[in-house]
Amino acid sequence: MPRYILKRILVAIPLLLAMSFLTFVLMQMTPGNFFDSLKLDPQISLETIARYEQLYQLDKPLFQQYLHWVKNLLKFEFGYSFFYNVPVGRLIAARAWNTFILSLASLILTWLVAIPLGIWAAVRRNSFVDRFLSLCSFAGLSLPSFFLAIILLYIASRWNLLPLGGMRSAYYDDLTWAGRITDLLRHLVIPTVVISLSSIAALQRIMRGNMLDVLRQQYILTARAKGLPEHRVIYRHALRNAVNPLITLFGYELSGLLGGAALIEIICNWPGLGSLMLTAVRAKDVYLVMSSMLMGGVLLLLGNLIADILLAWSDPRIRYD
């Protein structure tokens, strides 16, 4: 197992490097750099700007700049952010963590809601409940997430239920430990619901399909012939087998969430990797953009890796072959 993980990581490294190089090239394609805006300021002398450019290697040939950045990567230095005036590493760490919290919350919500709904729909196949859920799933998949975000923010503003975006209230530091958690949860509600909706819709349909497939299997007949109570047949035998193929989905969802969350982060003002990326792109903050991309790619990769590991763990047929 550890060898398998190592192999996957080794294969990923050239891919990540290629991706970062692509990003670098893209950033350089736009004429000008961050300091152009400074050049317009008459108070800053051209010499100062030239010195800055020298400091950040912007006067060297492009390829050298890139190599310099990669070299620093190995020292875990991600470069410097011109816009925020801090080393990129620190920024990314904090923001990545926030994005992770949001993604995790969405994942939990998705699975908590979708699995029972899927089971319910399968067990009550073709009933009113099943058809209603099917309709809702369809609508949920088609509703643009940003639209839902706007509507929910509006509703929250009218009825003063929840904070309108951001991650912390202004008075966060005055709260107790429990109060802080509540505050975080309240801020999490809207972005989490928005992000989860389409995942719930999709997962519910898949779960329903899997359950129906499993319920047709021989071992379910055996379980009933053994005289097991129906709840055991459904919740132990059927469920366990139906969820199995979804375990890989879990990992891929985690990685998919990171990208999908970006837009909602921006709309709801959640201080995560996505909104950082937007700011960086707007400001042409080269190293910040590249590092964010890299981080995004790494998180995606991690998600896929977790998916594969989980698959191997959950299905003994794969494990013992």
């Binding site: 071992y219 007949l221 055996t222 087998n241 003994p316």
Partner: peptide, 11 residues
């Protein structure tokens, strides 16, 4: 049952 591989729960 006839086919014990399918009649047992594989997990």
């Amino acid at each position: 049952f006839q086919e014990p591989l399918h009649a047992f729960n594989p997990l």
